[in-house]
């Protein structure tokens, strides 16, 4: 029973994160409204973070926090290094989204439209 649940979970986590990356890329590539493009980039961020953390999982492992009385449980803990790297990645993803949204606000103020088909200054 445990083995079957583990098999499903193995496919579930990787599939969900890869699907999130693909959906976000699809939104960033085909949508016409600027805010939808920024939302697509944010969804790609979420998928990548989930994928990075899923790599560090160890079967039947627990969170890497030492409770009082269990100081020698280091053999049963999941990998803490991807979690520390993903913390940095979340902050940087947020910073990129904030600056992208401020650029969208400036573009809207100048052209009074959010569709990228109508912002034609740089086209020939």
């Amino acid at each position: 029973m445990d083995e079957k649940i583990f098999e499903i979970m193995q496919f579930g986590v990787y599939t969900a994160s890869i699907l999130l990356i693909l959906i976000g890329l699809y939104a960033a590539l085909t949508k016409k409204s600027l805010i939808k493009i920024v939302i697509g980039l944010s969804i790609v961020d979420a998928g990548i973070h989930l994928l990075l953390i899923a790599i560090g999982y160890i079967n039947l492992g627990t969170a890497p926090i030492f409770s009082p009385g269990y100081e020698d449980a280091a053999a049963k803990m999941v990998d803490p290094v991807p979690q520390a790297l993903v913390l940095t990645a979340i902050v940087i993803g947020f910073a990129v989204t904030a600056v992208a949204l401020s650029l969208v606000i400036r573009l809207y103020r100048h052209h009074h439209t959010l569709e990228i088909d109508e912002i034609k200054n740089l086209k020939w």
Binding site: P64, I65, F66, P80, V81, L87
Partner: peptide, 24 residues
């Protein structure tokens, strides 16, 4: 790997309970 050294040093050298905090 790297995580074994970090997990062990967090308890013995730093006396901190949260490993992710001590790494960051």
């Amino acid at each position: 790997g790297v995580k074994d050294t970090y997990l062990e040093k967090t308890v013995s050298e730093l006396h901190v309970a949260n490993t992710v905090t001590s790494i960051i």
